[in-house]
C-alpha cells in the first residue's frame, strides 16, 4: 500500500515539475564505463581463440605474422566503438 502511495507521489512530482528529482540508477558516465569494460572483456575473449590459432599458423609459416596480427586485433574494434559511447554521453 505504501509503495503505491510513493509511486503516486513520484508521478505527482513529475507532473508538477516536468522532471525527476531522484538520482538515476546509474550516472551516464558510469554507464559508459561499464559499456567500455564489457566490450573490452568480450574483445579479449574473442581474441583468445584467434590469437591461439594465429600463433599456431605463424609457427608453421613465418610469413603469416602480419595477417595473423591483423586477424588477432580485429575484435579490438568492439572496444573502439564502445569508446565512441564515452564521447557521446
Amino acid at each position: 500500500m505504501s509503495a503505491e502511495l510513493a509511486l503516486a507521489a513520484a508521478v505527482e512530482t513529475v507532473m508538477q515539475n516536468g522532471d525527476v528529482t531522484e538520482a538515476p540508477f546509474l550516472e551516464a558516465d558510469a554507464a559508459a564505463a561499464i559499456a567500455v569494460g564489457l566490450s573490452a572483456l568480450a574483445a579479449g575473449y574473442a581474441e583468445r581463440g584467434i590469437g591461439a590459432a594465429a600463433i599456431g599458423a605463424i609457427a608453421e609459416d613465418d610469413d603469416l605474422f602480419v595477417p595473423g596480427l591483423i586477424m588477432t586485433v580485429l575484435p579490438e574494434t568492439l572496444v573502439i566503438f564502445a569508446i565512441v559511447v564515452v564521447f557521446l554521453v
Binding site: 581463440g49 584467434i50 591461439a52 590459432a53 594465429a54 600463433i55 599456431g56 599458423a57 609457427a59 608453421e60 609459416d61
Partner: peptide, 14 residues
C-alpha cells in the same frame, strides 16, 4: 583444450 592452436597448425601441415 587448445583446439584453435592445434587446428591452425594441423591445417598448415595438411
Amino acid at each position: 583444450s587448445n583446439t584453435e592452436y592445434v587446428s591452425a597448425r594441423v591445417r598448415a601441415r595438411r
